[in-house]
Computed example of a mutant assay.
Amino acid sequence: MVAALLLTGRSLLKCRMSGVKATQRLCSSVSSGRHRVNGVDLYYEQTGEGKHAVLLIPGALGSTQTDFGPQLKSLNKERFTVVGWDPRGYGRSRPPQRDFPPDFFERDAKDAVALMETLGFGRFSLLGWSDGGITALIAAATKPQLIDKMVVWGSNAFVSQDDLKLYNMVRDVSKWSERMRRPMEEVYGAEAFAKTWESWVDGIAQFAHRPEGSICVEHLPLISCPTLIIHGEKDPMVPSFHPHYLHKHIKGSRLHLMPEGKHNLHLRYAEEFNKLVEDFLEESPDYFSTPNN
C-alpha cells in the first residue's frame, strides 16, 4: 500500500526531455504525452510495439518516474506495448491537486480505462502495484470486456485495524529517512508531499469505517480475467492475509510468493519480477480453467 516508503529513489529514465506537448520521442525509445481524460490532463509514457498492451498503475502518490523504471526499460518491447501513467493529482498529471473522496479508487479506475481507450487500445492487461493494484481490481471488475489479464502486488481489498496502525506509523514524513523522502520530494516539493501524504493516510483510513473495512471487497467476485497475485513475504506494509484473501475471492487466480520480497519487489528484484510477468501474460488462458491454481 505505502509505495512511497519503499522506493529505490532512482529514476531509470534520466534522458527525459523537457517541454512535453502532445507526444515526443525520448532517448530511451519511450514516447510521452498528455491526453484530456474525464476532465483532466493525464500524463503517460509508452514504449514497445507488441500486440499485447499493458498498463502500469502506480502506488500511493506514485508516478511513472518513481514507480516503474525497470518495467518501462526492460519488459519485452517486441511482445508488449507498455504504458505508464500518472493518475490525476500525482506526478505530472497536475493540476488538479490530489484529493481523496470516498470513490477515489473508482475514479482512478475510470481514468485508467479511459486513457487506454483514448490511446487506441481496445483490450489490454493491467499491472497494479499497491494502491495501483486496488485500482486494477476495480477496473477489471467493472470493465471485464476490456481486460485481458491482471497482475497485482502489495495490494489489499479492505482496511483492517492492523493496517490502520501501519498507516498511522508513517503519517509524519519528517520521521522518514532522507533517502525515503527524497524521491517524492523531488516530484512534489517537501511541503506539498507532506500535506498530500497526510491526506492519503486520511483517505485510506476512511475505508475502515465501512462494513468489513471494504475498499473493493464486493468487486472481487466480478473479476473474470486471469489474475496473478504476487506477494513479498517480507512486505512490512501489507500483512500476508491480504494476498491470501484476494486469492480466495478472485476466481481462478494464482498466488505467487517471493520469500525475500518486500513491498517494492518489482524494483528490488526487477529481473525476476519482469520474467514472471512476461511468462504469465503470454501463458495460455486454458491454465486458468481450474479455480485458484
Results as ranks from 00 to 15, higher is better:
Glu272Met: 12
Gly203Ile: 09
Gly84Trp: 03
Glu283Asn: 00
Val238Ser: 04
Asn168Cys: 06
Leu257His: 05
Ala60Tyr: 04
Gln46Glu: 13
Ser18Thr: 13
Tyr167Ala: 04
Tyr269Arg: 11
His231Gly: 01
Leu55Arg: 02
Ala3Thr: 11
Asn38Lys: 13
Ile138Thr: 05
Val40Ser: 10
Phe241Glu: 07
Val82Met: 06
Val277Lys: 02
Asp162Ala: 15
Gly120Asn: 04
Ser93Ile: 02
Val159Cys: 06
Lys251Glu: 13
His247Pro: 02
Ser199His: 02
His249Arg: 14
Pro87Thr: 03
Glu282Trp: 00
Ala4Phe: 11
Ser31Tyr: 11
Leu265Trp: 03
Lys175Gly: 10
His35Ala: 14
Asn292Ser: 09
Lys14Ala: 12
Phe121His: 15
Ala139Lys: 00
Pro95Trp: 00
Ile57Ser: 07
His35Ile: 10
Gly252Trp: 00
Lys251Tyr: 11
Ser63Trp: 03
Val159Tyr: 08
Tyr188Pro: 01
Ser289Gln: 13
Thr290Pro: 02
Lys234Gln: 15
His249Phe: 14
Val152Asp: 05
Tyr90Cys: 14
Glu283His: 00
Arg268Glu: 15
Asp67Ile: 01
Ile204Glu: 10
Ser63Gln: 06
His219Ala: 13
Leu267Asn: 09
Arg98Ala: 11
Thr23Lys: 09
Gly50Cys: 10
Arg79Met: 11
Leu246Pro: 02
Phe273Lys: 01
Val277Glu: 02
Asp202Thr: 13
Trp176Thr: 07
His256Gly: 00
Arg171Pro: 07
Glu278Met: 12
Asp111Ser: 01
Met169Trp: 08
Thr23Arg: 10
Cys225Asp: 02
Leu72Val: 01
Leu42Ile: 15
Gln71Phe: 04
Phe273Val: 15
Gly50Thr: 10
Val20Gln: 07
Pro226Ala: 04
Asp99Ile: 12
His266Asp: 05
Leu75His: 00
Thr23Met: 07
Ala109Met: 09
Arg92Lys: 15
Lys14Phe: 07
Glu272Arg: 14
Ala3Leu: 09
Ser29Thr: 09
Tyr44Asn: 02
Asp41Ser: 13
Gln71Ala: 08
Leu228Asn: 01
Asp103Pro: 03
His219Thr: 09
Ile204Lys: 00
Phe288Asp: 02
Asp279Phe: 08
Val173Ile: 14
His247Phe: 15
Met169Thr: 13
Leu265Tyr: 06
Leu26Asn: 15
Thr196Cys: 04
Gly59Ala: 10
Leu13Val: 07
Pro243Tyr: 08
Tyr287Gln: 06
Glu186Ser: 07
Thr47Gln: 09
Leu12Gly: 12
Lys73Met: 13
Asn264Glu: 14
Val40Lys: 10
Cys15Thr: 13
Asp103Ala: 14
Ser31Asn: 13
Arg88Gly: 05
Gly91Lys: 01
Thr8Asn: 12
Trp153Leu: 13
Ala109Glu: 07
Gly261Glu: 10
Gly84Val: 03
Val151His: 06
Gln145Ser: 12
Leu164Arg: 14
Ser284Phe: 00
Ser160Trp: 06
Ala194Glu: 11
Pro183Asn: 05
Ile134Ser: 11
Ser32Ile: 01
Pro95Val: 06
Asn293Val: 14
Asp67Lys: 05
Gly120Ser: 11
Glu178Gly: 02
Lys21Val: 15
